[in-house]
Amino acid sequence: MDHLRYFVIREGGRRLHNPLTSDQLAALGRTLRLEKGARVLDLASGSGELLCTWARDHGITGTGVDICPEFTDRADARALELGVDGLVRFVHGDASDYVADEPVDLACCLGASWIGGGAAGTAELLRRSLRPGGTVLLGEPFWRREPPDQRAVEACHAYDADGFPTLPELLAYFGELDYDVVGMTIADQQGWDRYKSAQWLSMRRHVTRHPDDGLAGLLRAELAAEPAEYARYEREYLGWGVFALMAR
Protein backbone atom coordinates (compact mmCIF):
# COMPACT_ATOMS: atom_id res chain seq x y z
CA MET A 1 0.00 0.00 0.00
CA ASP A 2 1.11 3.55 -0.71
CA HIS A 3 1.00 4.71 2.91
CA LEU A 4 1.72 8.33 2.10
CA ARG A 5 -1.12 8.60 -0.43
CA TYR A 6 -3.43 6.78 1.98
CA PHE A 7 -2.65 9.35 4.68
CA VAL A 8 -3.20 12.25 2.27
CA ILE A 9 -6.60 10.83 1.30
CA ARG A 10 -7.68 10.41 4.93
CA GLU A 11 -6.57 13.88 5.90
CA GLY A 12 -8.38 15.45 2.94
CA GLY A 13 -8.52 19.23 3.16
CA ARG A 14 -7.75 19.46 6.88
CA ARG A 15 -5.24 22.07 7.91
CA LEU A 16 -4.39 20.48 11.26
CA HIS A 17 -3.38 16.83 11.08
CA ASN A 18 -4.06 16.09 14.75
CA PRO A 19 -7.03 16.37 17.12
CA LEU A 20 -6.25 19.88 18.38
CA THR A 21 -8.76 22.52 17.35
CA SER A 22 -7.71 25.78 15.72
CA ASP A 23 -8.69 27.56 18.96
CA GLN A 24 -6.42 25.26 20.95
CA LEU A 25 -3.56 25.87 18.53
CA ALA A 26 -4.03 29.61 18.88
CA ALA A 27 -4.21 29.34 22.68
CA LEU A 28 -1.02 27.26 22.67
CA GLY A 29 0.79 30.03 20.81
CA ARG A 30 -0.34 32.53 23.44
CA THR A 31 0.65 30.19 26.28
CA LEU A 32 4.18 29.91 24.88
CA ARG A 33 4.44 33.74 24.94
CA LEU A 34 5.86 33.82 21.44
CA GLU A 35 7.71 37.02 20.65
CA LYS A 36 7.93 38.79 17.32
CA GLY A 37 10.87 37.49 15.33
CA ALA A 38 11.18 34.23 17.31
CA ARG A 39 12.58 31.44 15.15
CA VAL A 40 10.54 28.22 14.97
CA LEU A 41 11.33 24.86 13.37
CA ASP A 42 8.45 22.45 12.73
CA LEU A 43 9.46 18.91 11.72
CA ALA A 44 6.76 16.86 9.96
CA SER A 45 4.96 20.18 9.53
CA GLY A 46 2.03 18.87 7.47
CA SER A 47 -0.03 21.62 5.89
CA GLY A 48 1.81 24.35 7.78
CA GLU A 49 -1.02 25.64 9.94
CA LEU A 50 1.10 26.04 13.07
CA LEU A 51 3.79 28.15 11.42
CA CYS A 52 1.42 30.15 9.23
CA THR A 53 -1.04 31.14 11.93
CA TRP A 54 1.64 31.86 14.51
CA ALA A 55 3.49 34.00 11.96
CA ARG A 56 0.26 35.93 11.37
CA ASP A 57 -0.64 36.25 15.06
CA HIS A 58 2.79 36.64 16.67
CA GLY A 59 5.22 37.62 13.92
CA ILE A 60 7.39 34.53 14.34
CA THR A 61 9.62 33.31 11.53
CA GLY A 62 10.08 29.67 10.74
CA THR A 63 10.78 26.62 8.63
CA GLY A 64 8.61 23.56 8.19
CA VAL A 65 9.85 20.23 6.85
CA ASP A 66 7.58 17.47 5.57
CA ILE A 67 8.06 14.39 3.41
CA CYS A 68 4.71 14.83 1.65
CA PRO A 69 4.90 17.21 -1.34
CA GLU A 70 1.13 17.73 -1.36
CA PHE A 71 1.21 18.99 2.22
CA THR A 72 4.19 21.22 1.46
CA ASP A 73 2.27 22.72 -1.45
CA ARG A 74 -0.72 23.32 0.81
CA ALA A 75 1.54 24.99 3.36
CA ASP A 76 2.99 27.32 0.72
CA ALA A 77 -0.54 28.23 -0.37
CA ARG A 78 -1.63 28.86 3.21
CA ALA A 79 1.34 31.15 3.78
CA LEU A 80 0.37 33.17 0.71
CA GLU A 81 -3.27 33.26 1.83
CA LEU A 82 -2.33 34.68 5.24
CA GLY A 83 0.31 37.03 3.84
CA VAL A 84 3.17 35.45 5.78
CA ASP A 85 5.14 33.92 2.91
CA GLY A 86 8.00 36.28 3.72
CA LEU A 87 8.17 34.95 7.28
CA VAL A 88 7.88 31.18 6.85
CA ARG A 89 9.14 28.64 4.34
CA PHE A 90 8.40 24.98 3.77
CA VAL A 91 10.85 22.30 2.71
CA HIS A 92 9.91 19.02 1.04
CA GLY A 93 12.20 16.47 2.63
CA ASP A 94 12.87 13.85 5.29
CA ALA A 95 12.51 15.45 8.71
CA SER A 96 14.23 12.58 10.51
CA ASP A 97 17.72 14.05 10.05
CA TYR A 98 16.93 17.74 9.54
CA VAL A 99 18.89 20.27 11.58
CA ALA A 100 18.32 24.02 11.25
CA ASP A 101 21.08 26.17 9.74
CA GLU A 102 20.81 28.53 12.71
CA PRO A 103 19.64 27.80 16.27
CA VAL A 104 15.91 28.28 16.80
CA ASP A 105 13.89 29.44 19.79
CA LEU A 106 11.22 26.73 19.46
CA ALA A 107 11.52 23.31 17.83
CA CYS A 108 8.36 21.30 17.22
CA CYS A 109 7.16 17.87 16.17
CA LEU A 110 3.45 17.33 16.71
CA GLY A 111 2.33 13.75 16.33
CA ALA A 112 5.19 12.30 14.28
CA SER A 113 7.75 11.18 16.83
CA TRP A 114 8.43 8.14 14.68
CA ILE A 115 10.91 10.42 12.88
CA GLY A 116 13.21 10.06 15.88
CA GLY A 117 12.24 6.54 16.90
CA GLY A 118 10.01 7.78 19.73
CA ALA A 119 9.63 10.74 22.06
CA ALA A 120 13.17 10.60 23.44
CA GLY A 121 14.85 10.40 20.04
CA THR A 122 12.63 13.10 18.58
CA ALA A 123 13.27 15.43 21.51
CA GLU A 124 17.00 14.92 20.96
CA LEU A 125 16.62 15.56 17.21
CA LEU A 126 14.77 18.82 17.93
CA ARG A 127 17.33 19.80 20.54
CA ARG A 128 20.06 19.79 17.88
CA SER A 129 18.40 22.82 16.30
CA LEU A 130 17.59 24.60 19.55
CA ARG A 131 19.37 27.54 21.10
CA PRO A 132 20.32 27.24 24.79
CA GLY A 133 17.20 27.91 26.84
CA GLY A 134 14.88 27.22 23.91
CA THR A 135 11.71 25.13 24.00
CA VAL A 136 10.90 21.72 22.55
CA LEU A 137 7.27 21.07 21.58
CA LEU A 138 6.14 17.45 21.23
CA GLY A 139 2.72 16.01 20.36
CA GLU A 140 2.33 12.57 21.94
CA PRO A 141 -0.34 9.92 22.59
CA PHE A 142 -1.14 8.46 26.00
CA TRP A 143 -3.73 6.22 27.62
CA ARG A 144 -6.69 8.16 28.98
CA ARG A 145 -7.77 4.93 30.66
CA GLU A 146 -6.00 1.61 30.89
CA PRO A 147 -7.14 -0.53 27.93
CA PRO A 148 -9.19 -3.54 29.06
CA ASP A 149 -7.93 -6.06 26.51
CA GLN A 150 -5.74 -6.61 23.46
CA ARG A 151 -8.57 -5.68 21.10
CA ALA A 152 -8.72 -2.21 22.62
CA VAL A 153 -4.93 -1.90 22.43
CA GLU A 154 -4.88 -2.76 18.72
CA ALA A 155 -7.83 -0.48 17.94
CA CYS A 156 -5.83 2.40 19.45
CA HIS A 157 -2.84 1.55 17.23
CA ALA A 158 -0.57 0.46 20.08
CA TYR A 159 1.56 -2.68 19.87
CA ASP A 160 0.73 -3.70 23.43
CA ALA A 161 -0.70 -2.21 26.61
CA ASP A 162 2.73 -0.70 27.34
CA GLY A 163 2.87 0.92 23.90
CA PHE A 164 1.60 4.20 25.35
CA PRO A 165 2.10 5.62 28.83
CA THR A 166 -0.63 7.14 30.94
CA LEU A 167 -0.53 10.93 31.16
CA PRO A 168 1.23 10.94 34.57
CA GLU A 169 3.72 8.40 33.25
CA LEU A 170 4.39 10.50 30.16
CA LEU A 171 5.00 13.64 32.21
CA ALA A 172 7.31 11.71 34.53
CA TYR A 173 9.14 10.31 31.50
CA PHE A 174 9.92 13.81 30.25
CA GLY A 175 11.48 14.46 33.64
CA GLU A 176 13.58 11.31 33.30
CA LEU A 177 14.85 12.74 30.00
CA ASP A 178 15.98 15.79 32.02
CA TYR A 179 13.31 18.19 30.78
CA ASP A 180 10.96 20.44 32.72
CA VAL A 181 7.38 20.41 31.44
CA VAL A 182 6.45 24.08 31.04
CA GLY A 183 3.15 23.72 29.22
CA MET A 184 0.64 21.25 27.87
CA THR A 185 -2.48 21.32 25.72
CA ILE A 186 -4.64 18.20 25.73
CA ALA A 187 -7.05 17.31 22.92
CA ASP A 188 -10.63 16.91 24.17
CA GLN A 189 -13.23 14.46 22.93
CA GLN A 190 -14.96 17.06 20.76
CA GLY A 191 -11.64 17.72 19.03
CA TRP A 192 -11.17 13.98 18.50
CA ASP A 193 -14.72 13.67 17.14
CA ARG A 194 -14.20 16.47 14.63
CA TYR A 195 -10.81 15.10 13.60
CA LYS A 196 -11.97 11.53 13.04
CA SER A 197 -15.28 12.40 11.37
CA ALA A 198 -13.48 14.77 8.98
CA GLN A 199 -11.35 11.78 7.93
CA TRP A 200 -14.45 9.70 7.27
CA LEU A 201 -15.92 12.44 5.10
CA SER A 202 -12.67 12.71 3.12
CA MET A 203 -12.58 8.93 2.64
CA ARG A 204 -16.20 8.81 1.51
CA ARG A 205 -15.73 11.63 -0.99
CA HIS A 206 -12.63 9.95 -2.38
CA VAL A 207 -14.27 6.55 -2.98
CA THR A 208 -17.32 8.27 -4.51
CA ARG A 209 -15.18 10.25 -6.93
CA HIS A 210 -12.63 7.49 -7.56
CA PRO A 211 -14.44 4.13 -7.27
CA ASP A 212 -11.72 2.30 -9.20
CA ASP A 213 -8.85 3.60 -7.07
CA GLY A 214 -6.64 0.80 -5.77
CA LEU A 215 -7.28 2.00 -2.21
CA ALA A 216 -11.07 2.19 -2.61
CA GLY A 217 -11.75 -1.27 -1.20
CA LEU A 218 -9.72 -0.61 1.93
CA LEU A 219 -11.31 2.78 2.42
CA ARG A 220 -14.83 1.35 2.03
CA ALA A 221 -14.08 -1.35 4.59
CA GLU A 222 -12.75 1.22 7.04
CA LEU A 223 -15.77 3.47 6.53
CA ALA A 224 -18.04 0.55 7.39
CA ALA A 225 -16.24 -0.42 10.58
CA GLU A 226 -14.25 2.52 11.88
CA PRO A 227 -16.92 4.85 13.35
CA ALA A 228 -18.19 2.21 15.79
CA GLU A 229 -14.64 1.05 16.55
CA TYR A 230 -13.62 4.62 17.24
CA ALA A 231 -16.54 5.21 19.61
CA ARG A 232 -15.88 1.93 21.41
CA TYR A 233 -12.13 2.22 21.79
CA GLU A 234 -10.16 5.30 20.66
CA ARG A 235 -12.66 7.80 21.99
CA GLU A 236 -12.65 6.15 25.40
CA TYR A 237 -9.04 5.11 25.88
CA LEU A 238 -6.69 7.14 23.67
CA GLY A 239 -5.50 10.60 24.63
CA TRP A 240 -3.22 13.03 22.82
CA GLY A 241 -1.53 16.22 23.85
CA VAL A 242 1.15 18.77 23.02
CA PHE A 243 3.85 19.25 25.63
CA ALA A 244 6.30 22.15 25.95
CA LEU A 245 9.66 21.11 27.40
CA MET A 246 12.79 22.96 28.48
CA ALA A 247 16.07 21.20 29.19
CA ARG A 248 17.21 21.39 32.80
Rank of each mutant, 00 (worst) to 15 (best):
R30P: 11
A107C: 04
L125Q: 05
L130T: 00
E11Q: 07
R33H: 13
S47R: 12
C108W: 01
V8W: 04
L125P: 08
D97H: 12
E49Q: 14
C108D: 02
G116N: 01
L41H: 08
F71S: 00
R33S: 11
L50M: 11
A120D: 11
D73N: 05
L82N: 10
G37D: 08
E11G: 00
L110T: 11
D57L: 14
G48V: 01
I115V: 09
G86V: 06
D101K: 03
H17T: 12
F71W: 07
V88C: 12
A77I: 05
C68G: 00
L34M: 11
L106M: 14
F90S: 02
W114E: 05
S45L: 05
V104C: 07
G46H: 05
S113L: 05
E49V: 12
A38G: 02
A38W: 08
V91N: 01
S113V: 04
D101N: 04
R15D: 12
A112Y: 06
L82R: 14
H58N: 05
R56D: 05
G64D: 08
A26E: 15
D66W: 03
A79M: 06
P69M: 01
D85K: 12
R33A: 12
L126W: 05
A38V: 01
L25E: 10
L87A: 15
P19D: 02
L43S: 03
R128S: 04
A79G: 05
L82Q: 11
L50G: 03
R127H: 07
A27V: 12
A123S: 08
V84S: 02
G64R: 07
V8E: 09
A119H: 08
D76Y: 13
L32G: 07
